[in-house]
Design a protein around this nucleic acid. Sequence first.
DNA 1: CGGATCGTTGACAGGTATCAATGCTGGTGG
DNA 2: CCACCAGCATTGATACCTGTCAACGATCCG
Lengths: 231, 231
Amino acid sequence: MKPSLFDQAWNGVEKCKQCRIRELVLFADLQEDDFEQLHQPIIDFDLAPGETLYEEQQASKFVFTLRSGMIKLVRYLPNGSYRIVRLLQRGDLAGIEALNNSAYLHHAIALQDTSICRIPIEDIEELNLHSPHLYKQLTARWYKVQQDADIWLAELTVGNSKKRVANLLLYLARHSLTDYFYLPGREDIGALLAITTETASRIIAKFKRLGYLQIEHHGALIDKDKLRAIS
Amino acid sequence: MKPSLFDQAWNGVEKCKQCRIRELVLFADLQEDDFEQLHQPIIDFDLAPGETLYEEQQASKFVFTLRSGMIKLVRYLPNGSYRIVRLLQRGDLAGIEALNNSAYLHHAIALQDTSICRIPIEDIEELNLHSPHLYKQLTARWYKVQQDADIWLAELTVGNSKKRVANLLLYLARHSLTDYFYLPGREDIGALLAITTETASRIIAKFKRLGYLQIEHHGALIDKDKLRAIS
DNA sequence: CGGATCGTTGACAGGTATCAATGCTGGTGG
DNA sequence: CCACCAGCATTGATACCTGTCAACGATCCG
């Protein structure tokens, strides 16, 4: 989780301008001039699976852009179990609630090897005050939060477990052209869909037997048509 | 749903300044000068239960502030049923996704007699460009969307039905000092919690028999301690 | 007063949680 | 290099819960 000295030294501004996924990220619309408003370093670093990016209720001074990998946003429940409320992928912004000067609303935990850029809130506020080019992207990010949350509520919490797992697999595969994608552990699948680990395992195993799903390492390959027929 | 001529004539600016719930709404932080940026009329009107404020995918030129009453945000599912993804109450903003120049993401339908102010997007964008006083409230509104969505996901979609109904009742009563609040119909309770109408009815009836809940007209009075023990 | 709408209840089949035991696999240290 | 271990996945048995289909009661409104 600690940024390397190399990365810290080569601080963000030049790097941001040349970022390979810049069209995907928060700074997509920025002009040359705008980058001069960035006074604090933007550093980037990697997380290994299971590592925590930030914790709920922790003071929040940064938002984070995902350059690659996957992060789960988790809320723990009073009884000790947990619920995954969103998954973030390439180009997504984590910890956007920091912009409201509030504590983080979730635990953010890496599921895969994940590459992150850390952006100070102060820079964003400064930039937003002096340039009109950030507003649109910020609004778009907030919008996406709402949209994702609604998809979750409408598609992944209704119907029986078989339907939900099918929908989850399709959701995970939606950006993959090859139909190959990262498949979370069974416990996480349970936490994503509000079902138990055992039920998640049974259904995944069944899909495997039926040939709707092939598993290799931590990834999976699905038959989208068959799964769509279920959902 | 049509604004009365009287309301249209007495256009919004003066009214907004004197609004009784202004500290709750989007314009809370505006200064005298800011109001001069508002060029289009802000009109207000009422909705009766069951009336539609806007529909999903409809072009969106306005956001709406709820002065009183309650609105459900609904998504229809492919199979014809529906899911309520959020409830809006006094001070809340409906249709905030319009700020992203996108179509509305839900159907917005009144549950009670509801009083609404209609604010043109153009005014908000104009205002935001020339005054720093709106940004904070806008961010706060987006933040609330995320927070509400997360509460929904974490509290109202986990556990068995009894637990969910108990949590919903506590959620509905959370702003009421008297423990008295509007109780949705059983079908809507089902759509809120992703359970069937019958199950919702059974549980509400059981709570009634146990004395955890008294019903009068469309409202209810609950025993918070008993319900908290369940959840 | 009648009809429409909503709420309630019953019976039953199917789905899911729970508890418990057994495979499987990748990583570690000898 | 291999045996072992810890963590994860799978599977079984069972009780409980929920959806489904159906009927009946209550309430509101014209």
